[in-house]
Design a protein around this nucleic acid. Sequence first.
DNA 1: TGATCCCGCCAACGT
DNA 2: ACGTTGGCGGGATCA
Length: 832
Amino acid sequence: KTPLKQAATSHSVLTEIQPDCQPLTTPPKPKEILPADPWTPTSNLKMLISAASPEIRSREQRRELSNNTREVLQAKHCLQEHLSGDEYEKSQPSRKEKSLGLLCHKFLARYPDYPSTAENNYICLDEVAEELNVERRRIYDIVNVLESLHMVSRLAKNRYAWHGRHNLSKTLQALKKVGEENKYTQQIQMIKKREYEHEFDFDGDRNEEMARSCGSNEHSEMSFVELPGMEFRAASVNSRKDKSLRVMSQKFVMLFLVSTPQIVSLEVAAKILIGEDQLEDLDKSKFKTKIRRLYDIANVLSSLELIKKVHVTEERGRKPAFKWTGPEVLPNIQDTKLETTSTTCPPPISESITSKDQCSKNLFPSRGKQNFTRHPSLIKLVKSIENDRRKIQSAPTSPVKISASTDQNLSAFPSKMAQVPAIAKHQLEGQSKKAKEEMKMKLSRSALECNLSSPEAVPKPEPPRTAAPSQQPALAQPLGVCPPSHSSVPPVILPHTHSGVSYAIYLHPSQAHTVTTYSPSFMLQTLPCANITGIKSINSKVLNKITTEEGDNQIATDDPTKSLTAKDRPTRKSETSSQRCLKRSQALQENNLIKRYRSDEENLDTSLTFFPSGYLIPLTQCTHGNKAGFSDKEKAGICSLQHTTYSSPIASVIPVTASELKAVNTPLNIMLSPTSIAAAPVLSNSCLTSSSTSSAQSSSVLNFTLQHVGLIPAGVQVPANPVLQHMPVSSQPENVSHSSENMNLQEEKVSKNTLQLLDRGGSSGNYSAVIPLQQPCVPKELQEPPTVTENFFRTPGGPNTVSSLSANSDGTDRISQGTLYIPQRKLEVSED
DNA sequence: TGATCCCGCCAACGT
DNA sequence: ACGTTGGCGGGATCA
């Protein structure tokens, strides 16, 4: 079975030969076409395959149009062959023909985007490799990326299950959420900024700081994000290595989902992804390698039509970049939560075995490159569990699995069930491509609806849970109603839902900040804390615009001048607030953190515990919830709650329906999206240091905690509002956010949200961070980016200060920008 | 040339 | 031991 080398011959020949048929157009163009038009070349192959397997056909059908271009390509081939023997010999190899992108197209052509659940489509790697005439190694590259999107999941050794795009939207949502949590937006900004300043200033300090901050940010690594509800985790089988490609792929996607212009340059992506080790400067080789991998990933994503290559032209020159062309991710969707009825809300605390399992996975991931692997004990558990799953899974269609499953299993299962609704959604999405915008709206709605309705109608999925019902699934439900807007929620707190759908857990092993909760069934989440880095001064430099062909970008354009206004703030980097809640276990492992911490300056990091700041807490449920979810931590003791502050920010979340949000937002440009808001956590940085606050904070903390406790249960039933209430209260007096003023309008509209925002001022901080305001909304002064920025990042010296971050907006791009105001450079994006 | 990225060695794992 | 996965980076191609 060793990989055959390509004997390319036979198969390839076939493939190529067949093409003849096509009209030969001009031979010339072959080149570019490739990426763009995938299918053609493959078509032949498809034919063959289709004959063999029915599944394929469906796929083919879908792809109705093959472009001419493709044909051209083929034509080219034909020509070559025909032209001369010599030629044709050569022709075979053309590098392009062997490209991963093309291979991926071929691969994808074999399976339907939306396979029927009934059929189990599974993939045998050997077969595929053989049929496509490639080494198995290449197939792994493809599959790994697909796996990161949950388009496939591994069943066993040579087998993978094909899910197609059914889970895609959920996966993307989950990724987006995680990306927001990780503050990728900020990280990106940081990097860009840095570049600016780049070499010029060599302040060691500065650089270091930067690095540090970055590092901190970066670290936020999370491990592999498991499906959002849908399916079981593919990861299962894999052992530990989930490392790179898979995770890298997810991170890469997150960058797109989080960044406003949805354009990500390889350089930036590589830097962010490298994160862990930091040491940026050092490795060039590392950087280079990272880029190489990104190309691999990008090729697959391009084949999936999720991204396309473009070039960003800056002052410096043009850099390769990719633009997201995939579906938009709806911010909210409750996804699972709603669906589930779930079962339980497991006390967050309890760690069930399951949870461990999850944890383990999470743990090992990133960070230290070293080997932190999971604890052996965990590993074993995991494995056993995984095995069970596999078995279960192996019987794809059949619902049977339940039996086997343990809690976890349950969680897994539901997913399938859940899929149903999902499917519908997906379909919509597919259509959406055509009329994206319109569709978007619809989708969001539909999605919501779906979620609500669908969820699990199918009961069976989780026996256990259901059994447990004691809890009230209520959580989910209630939320469901409102919440649609915040999809995010689930993850965090609510574990319950398992409804399969629900969630996945994310962790961030990385540094730290994560907290994990285990709920048995669900997920853990981590909250990344915010590491936010502040932004430095915006000074002059900054501002960039990006323009895409499409012109998407214009967004940011602020005048540089404005930025100037900001002037000098020396850099304020923001502190990073890293929060971490680790599980104990994790805690141990995390060495890295320590390193980073070097910034003693701010002990913050440590101190900050964090909550998932970014997280969205489901308003409903949690409220401050951030913590709530994490209450566990408390147990762990890891997280310190000290920072009360954050609470406020969180609060901001609102249960607004998505539609509402959009409506509101758009016009106003405000970022209300719950998610975003939530995301923007505010942290008080200095907390630790400043003990002063602490008292207050502590109290607040307690409150939170209590709330949680109470909330959770209550949460189920209780609507989000409660949360809000808390917010205000909790929030201390001080903060006033300028923004608030601005916000008003919005607030009204979005009443709930608004309020929170105001609150957010953050108890402690002087500057409250306002949540991202929109510029438009913002009053003049505020508007100035710089200003805003400052607010956010700045810590007014004291301990009290709060930094906020903005999170990304989910939906709202503008918002984020406004919020951060990071300077962007002008960029021009051009397609290839 | 710089941007891409194919190719396949070889280590980490699994069985 | 051997097969499967997949990290990694040299160096070939492409533009």
